[in-house]
């Protein structure tokens, strides 16, 4: 297993290299002038020229890429053209917010999606099953930004139960930074009011993303459970008089979890993309917001940094999914 993990980690290097080449090339192909981001909207042609020269943007693309990779090899993700901050430092600042949102979303999506999938499989064809299927079509098909607006209008606008945006209330002081995730940091600091405030702010954006993610997870779990329940080993277990609850939870569910695990892995990639929209709608101030501003300003080091970070996260999630496979299915062996 150790050798397998080491091999997979090594395989990540060419993938990241390929992603870096593609992102660098595509970003530079985009119409626009990165020097404008640094110089400002009112910059004159002469001013742009000077800024271009100062930032090395007048160099040929291969030379710019070589310089970037040289710095990257030393662990330096470069400096943002707009803020002049280290991209690595900015990623450290913005990533915890996104991670907090992702974890909360996955908690809801998996925590609700899997039990719902199992329950509706048990009640196949009944009203609960039909209701879930109907809802899941809505969840999967509805664009997340639209779901976000509906939830904002309903829970924040009409009912006034939840805050409309932000990570904390206007009067709440952020807790001491340990992880950068407000709920966790407030919990660690024992600031219960802040925990509650952070949770209330987290609920709507996490729910928005979880409706889409949980619907997909639930649908796949339901379908996989129905397939597993048709398998011979289930019939054998029932014939042996194994209690129905054990048949479901010990025999069918672990097998049904294989495709669900794949979907959960894919959801992480979907959510990483989805946060760009959601973070902007909810003023979340995470990686999505950072990506949005970076892309609109054509801040190449920022775009590169975000892409490499997102790719790394995705590769590790993929690795994790493969390792979970081995736990769920003893027939799978890595070596």
């Amino acid at each position: 297993m150790g050798r397998y993990i080491a091999r997979r980690l090594l395989q990540m290097v060419p993938v990241l290299l390929g992603v870096s080449v593609l992102t660098f090339a595509l970003t530079n192909l985009l119409p626009g002038d990165p020097a404008r981001a640094a110089a400002g909207r009112h910059a004159t042609p002469q001013q742009l020229e000077e800024v271009r020269e100062r930032l090395g943007l007048d160099q040929p693309l291969p030379a710019q890429y070589a310089m970037y990779m040289g710095r990257l090899a030393r662990g330096d993700l470069g400096t943002s053209l707009t803020s002049r901050q280290s991209v690595a430092e900015e990623l450290r600042l913005f990533f915890p917010a996104t991670l907090e949102l992702l974890l909360a979303t996955m908690l809801i999506a998996v925590g609700v999606g899997i039990p719902l999938g199992v329950l509706t499989a048990a009640r196949r064809g009944r009203w609960a099953d039909r209701a879930f299927l109907g809802f899941s079509y809505f969840g999967v098909g509805m664009p997340v930004f639209f779901t976000a607006l509906l939830l904002q209008i309903f829970f924040a606008g009409w009912l006034g139960w939840l805050p409309i945006a932000g990570r904390l209330g206007l009067a709440t002081v952020p807790p001491p930074a340990f992880t950068g995730m407000y709920t966790v940091d407030a919990l660690l600091a024992g600031q219960w009011t802040t925990v509650l405030d952070a949770l209330r702010h987290l609920l709507l954006p996490a729910l928005t993303l979880a409706i889409a993610g949980g619907s997909e997870v639930g649908r796949i779990t339901r379908r996989s459970m129905l397939q597993a329940l048709d398998e011979e080993y289930v019939r054998t277990a029932r014939a042996k008089g194994v209690p129905e609850r054990t048949v479901w939870l010990r025999h069918a569910l672990p097998n049904a979890m294989l495709p669900t695990t794949t979907v959960i892995g894919l959801q992480v990639a979907f959510l990483l993309g989805g946060t760009v929209l959601i973070e902007n709608i909810f003023s979340w101030g995470g990686l999505g917001t950072y990506a949005w501003t970076g892309i609109f300003r054509l801040d190449i080091p920022v775009i590169m940094g975000i892409t490499l970070l997102a790719t790394t996260v995705y590769l590790f999630v993929n690795l994790g999914v493969d390792l979970v496979y081995a736990r769920l299915d003893p027939r799978i062996r890595y070596g």
Binding site: L149, Q152, I153, A156, G157, G160, P163, I164, A165, G166, L170, N280, I281, S283
Partner: peptide, 20 residues
């Protein structure tokens, strides 16, 4: 005073009407 960024106009409108 607090300057808060809220990109969506619908959300800004709700916040104003609600007194937030």
């Amino acid at each position: 005073a607090v300057f808060r960024v809220l990109r969506e106009e619908v959300a800004r409108r709700i916040a104003l009407v609600n007194g937030d």
